[in-house]
Nucleic acid binder design. Structure first.
Length: 575
RNA sequence: UGGGCCGUCGACUAAUGGUAGGUCAAGUGCCUUUGGAGCACUUUGUCUAGGUUCGAAUCCUAGCGGCCCAGCCA
């Protein structure tokens, strides 16, 4: 297993000693010390191909691959494809693409369905050993016989069939002699166990369904509990990490391995990722897609890896985020702000700066020569001198952001207003002299004068201005569509719903805002799909695949921190 | 109300019987040709009650609180 080194990774591989410890690493360290597995570390990432991967899976991926990597071990990608009714090749493909994008390469590529023959042989063995039996009870009867949380279950009347009869029936189940749901194969364990998973769990069910890989070869399919541990064992997995809800399954995981006398993989459970303002449920996400609440699995508002990739998040940011949140067994919820911090941190280092105006307000510099155009020098990235500089055209008519002008400036507002001088970034100092309004009284044009001595943005007399604002030359501007996203959920906990409502009622109706007439500096005319920029003073933006020649489409990845917005909020909102 | 797991700043997480620390968030100041970034500083924490111990966030007991389990899903 190796991580794929992407851009600007030099020196960011933190020294192992500075890595915060966690209980999973401690277990591995201990196993290494006691030579439990001959010094070997083998993990696996085992998604079911029934949907797209989301940020929660990123935690598992980073853990599975990262821990193995740390101890020079190996990691397999294994598709847990034991339920043909839910699984599709489309999902297999997207999962592989997402894992690679995150920066990981698997050693072995496996499918639980690779093991169907072996699993079947092992089932025959368990039957012969008197550890499994065919049950004719219906699903509902099985539920009734199972008992409850507080009452023990009852043995099925079919529990004590002879080995011969069980063998015959199970082989005929496989041969397709019985309809779906008519019989199951169950492990014979303990109907009175306080752990419901041990009350004779179902091993095989009859499903006359086409499997995305094995086609119609099988009409009986193993259950998760019967397939997972043995799959781990077959791959000689040493540390099988999964989420907390499988804790109660561990005794069963161990039981099958023990009865079969096969390689003893060990299951270790950790807390799944929960993020505020975010829903991480494949089922719900699928519903959003199917009901058209979002544009697809890769809608930039989705917490899927394909969604956040399209939005402009980087794999490095996600890996840093996951590393920072740690691993434990406490059930909690991480603030979205934490994720956003790592996205900004990474983008700040790598994203070239450009000037773009989202909501244009026309500015005319009255004393600037009518047809003059100057090429101003602009730094591409103040965080990265190697990024160099570019030329940006300056002329008499410009666009600035509507927010950067106020006819009546509120307290602490430093930007342009009548009589005030500000700096046009990389341009000149300009002073507002007058405004033009439409019949509704709205300012539609601002007139200024400039000081020719301040070319580039510095005054020879050292006078200061309190604000620097960005601009785009009207004659040179590239028109663009910009999509601005808000959280899909305004509530920190999306599943906190009123009586009789569901999460869909919590969906933020304003999660997408499309700005159709943004003005970009001309260097952006050739921006390639997927490339990321900082629009100065606004945020980070990336080029969407919907872009067409001459009409780029940008997604706002995330806004810059906005101290003014905070000040304004404190003052009681916009005036 | 049976079983399992878990309780450390607002959030996440470290301290492995010996100085309660880090990151995010929040706040203050400095700096600034991005009200960005950066730098410095600050606030707030061991669920409760007993016990063991020279010493407890850590071990024990009880209580309280949270999460998970009654699919022929994973």
């Amino acid at each position: 297993m190796k991580t794929t080194d992407t851009e600007a990774e030099t020196g960011t591989n933190a020294a192992p000693e500075s890595r915060p410890s966690n209980f999973v690493r401690d277990i591995i360290l201990d196993d290494l010390k006691t030579n439990k597995y001959g010094g070997r570390v083998q993990t696996r990432f085992p998604p079911e191909p029934n949907g797209y991967l989301h940020i929660g899976h990123a935690k598992a991926i980073c853990l599975d691959f990262g821990l193995a990597d740390e101890f020079h071990g190996h990691t397999n990608l294994r598709f847990d494809d034991t339920n043909p009714e839910k699984e599709e090749t489309e999902y297999v493909d997207s999962i592989m693409a997402d894992v690679k994008w995150l920066g990981f390469n698997w050693d072995g590529l496996f499918y639980a369905s690779d093991y169907f023959d072996q699993l079947y042989e092992w089932a025959l063995k368990l039957i012969r050993d008197g550890k499994a039996y065919v049950d004719d009870l219906s699903a509902e009867e099985i539920r009734k016989y199972r008992g409850t949380l507080t009452e023990p279950g009852k043995d099925s009347p079919y529990r004590n069939r002879s080995v011969e009869e069980n063998l015959d029936l199970f082989q005929r189940m496989k041969a397709g002699e019985f309809p779906d749901g008519s019989r199951v194969l169950r492990a014979k364990i303990d109907m009175a166990s306080p752990n419901l998973n041990m009350r004779d769990p179902v091993m095989y069910r009859i499903l006359h369904a086409e499997h995305h890989r094995t086609g119609n070869k099988w009409c009986i399919y193993p259950m998760y509990d019967y397939a997972h541990g043995q799959s781990d064992s077959l791959e000689k997995v040493t540390h099988s990490m999964c989420t907390l809800e499988f804790e109660d399954h561990r005794p069963l995981y161990n039981w099958f391995i023990q009865q079969l006398g096969i390689f003893p993989s060990q299951q270790i459970e950790f807390d799944r990722l929960n993020l505020t303002h975010t829903l991480l449920s494949k089922r719900k996400l699928r519903q959003f897609v199917q009901e058209g609440r979002v544009r697809g699995w890769d809608d930039p508002r989705m917490p899927t890896l394909s969604g956040i990739r399209r939005r402009g998040y980087t794999p490095e940011a996600i890996r840093n985020f996951v590393a920072s949140i740690g691993v434990s067994k406490t059930t909690g919820s991480i603030e979205l702000a934490m994720l956003e911090h790592f996205v900004r941190e990474d983008l700040n280092k790598r994203a070239p700066r450009v000037m773009a105006v989202l909501r244009p307000l026309k500015v005319v510099i009255d004393n600037y020569p009518q047809n003059q155009v100057e090429e101003m020098d602009a730094v591409n990235n103040p965080e990265d001198p190697a990024a160099g500089s570019r030329k940006v055209p300056f002329s008499r008519v410009l666009y600035i952001e509507q927010d950067d002008f106020r006819e009546v400036p509120p307290p602490k507002y430093f930007r342009l207003s009548p009589g005030r001088e500000v700096r046009l970034r990389y341009g000149y100092f300009v002073t507002c002299t007058s405004v033009v309004k439409n019949d509704k009284g709205e300012v539609v044009e601002v007139h200024c004068t400039y000081d020719p001595a301040t070319r580039g943005g510095n005054a020879p007399d050292n006078r200061k201005v309190k604000a620097t604002i960005h601009w785009v030359s009207a004659a040179h501007a590239v028109d663009a569509e910009v999509r601005i996203y808000e959280n899909l959920f305004l509530k920190a906990d999306p599943s906190d719903v009123e009586e009789g409502q569901d999460v869909l009622d919590n969906l933020n109706p304003n999660s997408l805002e499309v700005v159709t007439s943004a003005k970009l500096e001309p260097s952006l005319a050739t921006a390639t799909v997927g490339s990321r920029y900082q629009f100065e003073r606004l945020g980070y933006f990336s080029v969407d695949p919907d872009s067409r020649p001459g009409k780029p489409v940008f997604n706002r990845t995330i806004a810059l921190k906005d101290t003014w917005a905070k000040v304004e909020r404190k003052q009681g909102g916009k005036s």
